[in-house]
Design a protein around this nucleic acid. Structure first.
Lengths: 223, 223
DNA sequence: AGATGTGAAATTCTTCACAGCG
DNA sequence: CGCTGTGAAGAATTTCACATCT
């Protein structure tokens, strides 16, 4: 149980809840969270059913409790080490952005074929030559890898990652990776995302998923 | 009609077909295309129903014809201009990768607040200061924008894009954009993608979506 | 034989609607 | 009252299965 879509939404909820809490919010209603996440209140309540959290009809949910329960459901208590392969523009962008990540994910090593990119520390992350992959991944017990290499080397690098014991790959290349059944691949293809959005630019049929506040300017919902 | 998922798959099919053709493939069966795309043959045939293309039970589909029909269905004949906002690592990575794009999408302008990044040509794309956004977008008739700026400026830049007449935004920031109903936003949140894949690294429950060739090395399927 | 094209079934996902609580 | 929690309805999507073609 817990579908792929549900997992994505729970991750979004948790992020929003943390930001809500940070702004001083203590309690939150399903319709408020729904508004922030861009889904329906019923969807939020349905998703919350899957984490073991009780709300109060008069006061809504205790934000911190809800965030914790979601974390438990997602298995987010233990820190997971992540390896980045490919320290090009894309890889460096990721490194820069994931320093600020919620804390349970840590990019502990980065790899590249280019000797000019290795042997230094970037955003707190050690950069190694790619031939150290097997050694470092085994030593640091890294289960997750981000694949941000060129399309042409994607397949062979993925094979090495699998051999080294990686069980999940965030694949940022446009290649379709073939991996053993126990390895999970998550594809993020920016080219496809761009083509998709360009398609919608032509066909005005709006999905009406956007906030109903048409014409309104962007403004953060404060608690 | 034509669901969001179906659109994504059609885009993938077309890309695979083009590569198939480039390798000398002329005809293709639904199960071959399904294999390459990582979906079921029935799904492929169902999707093909939506693009007006007739296959032949003995010889499968004519790859070039199928690619063309998909292109027609996706409205891919006319070239669409794209603007990139934010020439950081992420923006530059996109620029570098979209030079090789199929041809109907062209990044014609890039913008940044940093004067050191503007006034030059990067990967064939002119870089302008961000205050030229309205002028250039109007002049070049750009309907699509890629938002690759910092999270803190995402909302205000999105507002400017909408004001300038953009109708579709590929949002690479983790911010939820509020836009008028006629503007389509496509969110690609790498942080969520990473959290998602990390979740699956823990819970071994494999989605079995991967190729059934477990343990096999990556190898390109040649026609 | 082995493929396509497609109703119909099955499955999955979302929304409705309302009982029950504070 | 307005909100939560949830069974049940409803939609959407995928898969099955088979008639049909070559």
């Amino acid at each position: 149980m817990l579908s792929e879509r549900a997992i994505e939404r729970l991750i979004v909820y948790r992020r929003l809840l943390n930001s809500w809490i940070q702004r001083g919010g203590e309690r939150i209603y399903s319709h408020e969270l729904a508004n922030l996440a861009g889904v329906t209140p019923a969807q939020v309540r349905r998703d919350i059913m899957a984490v073991n959290c009780a709300g109060n009809p008069a006061r809504g949910y205790l934000a911190s409790d809800l965030a914790d329960r979601i974390g438990e459901r997602l298995g987010t208590r233990s820190v997971r080490n992540v390896a980045l392969v490919g320290i090009g523009n894309l890889g460096q962008a990721l490194l820069a952005h994931f320093v600020r990540d919620s804390g349970h994910l840590a990019v502990v090593a980065a790899f590249d074929v280019d000797p000019a990119k290795t042997g230094r520390v970037l955003h707190g992350c050690h950069c190694y030559p790619i031939d150290d992959i097997e050694r470092i991944i085994a030593r640091e017990h890294v289960p997750v890898a981000i694949l941000a290499v060129s399309a042409s080397s994607a397949a062979s690098v993925a094979d090495r990652l699998v051999q080294a014991g990686i069980t999940a790959i965030l694949n940022l290349t446009p290649e379709h990776l073939r991996v053993p059944a126990h390895v999970r691949v998550e594809n993020v293809d920016l080219g496809i995302a761009l083509e998709k959005v360009a398609f919608y630019a032509g066909h005005r049929q709006n999905a009406a998923v956007q906030q109903p506040t048409a014409g309104e300017l962007n403004r953060v919902n404060n608690p």
